[in-house]
């Protein structure tokens, strides 16, 4: 199932990209993400635990996220595979890409992806998934903007220090 959502953010492309280079910070902006940490011994791979409410079902996923492509300032792509550890039983596999377009003072962030859900989660069709993805993206945009402005603010603590 494919989806695409985009939003604009009041920050330059460079600023947004710098932030995107800190995956754990980005993870903090994604609604529902409870834990995110680098996987030892594997570059660009992370273990993520997140809870999402899909239609009538609430599910906690344990996923492995791997960054598969980076084009500085323009695009970052990642794959995620995981399974439900709590709530509705199911598995999932997703490929996502975020594309940044600097529009002079503003950046257009396009999130597109393809997700395959297996098990009872998969029986919920695209209408529900798409609505949910739109909601998650909107909240993500909001959080991202807040995080960026906080990072800009004088005296803000240094962010993403771990790597």
């Amino acid at each position: 199932m494919k989806f695409r959502h985009e939003f604009r953010i009041r920050a330059s492309g460079d600023e947004v990209w710098r932030f995107f280079e800190q995956p754990l910070e980005v993870a903090r902006c994604i609604p529902g993400v409870e834990e995110a940490e680098p996987l030892e011994g594997e570059d660009d791979s992370y273990s993520v635990r997140a809870t999402q409410k899909l239609g009538p079902m609430s599910t906690t996923f344990q996923a492995k996220v791997r960054i598969s492509e980076r084009t500085a300032g323009a695009r970052i792509a990642f794959t995620a595979t995981g399974k439900a550890v709590r709530g509705a039983v199911g598995n999932f596999r997703a490929q996502n890409a975020v594309t940044l377009t600097d529009e002079g003072g503003e950046t257009c962030v396009a999130v597109e992806g393809e997700v395959a859900l297996a098990g009872v989660l998969g029986t919920v069709g695209s209408a529900v998934i798409n609505r949910h993805a739109a909601k998650v993206t909107a909240e993500f945009a909001c959080n991202l903007e807040q995080a960026l402005s906080a990072a800009d603010a004088p005296g803000a603590p240094a962010r993403g220090g771990s790597h």
Binding site: M1, G55, A116, L117, A118, G122, T123, V124, G125, A127
Partner: peptide, 15 residues
């Protein structure tokens, strides 16, 4: 059914 995943994709009263 989604042919590539073999998954029933209209299995709820929403779909």
């Amino acid at each position: 059914y989604d042919e590539s995943t073999g998954q029933l994709v209209s299995g709820s009263m929403l779909d």
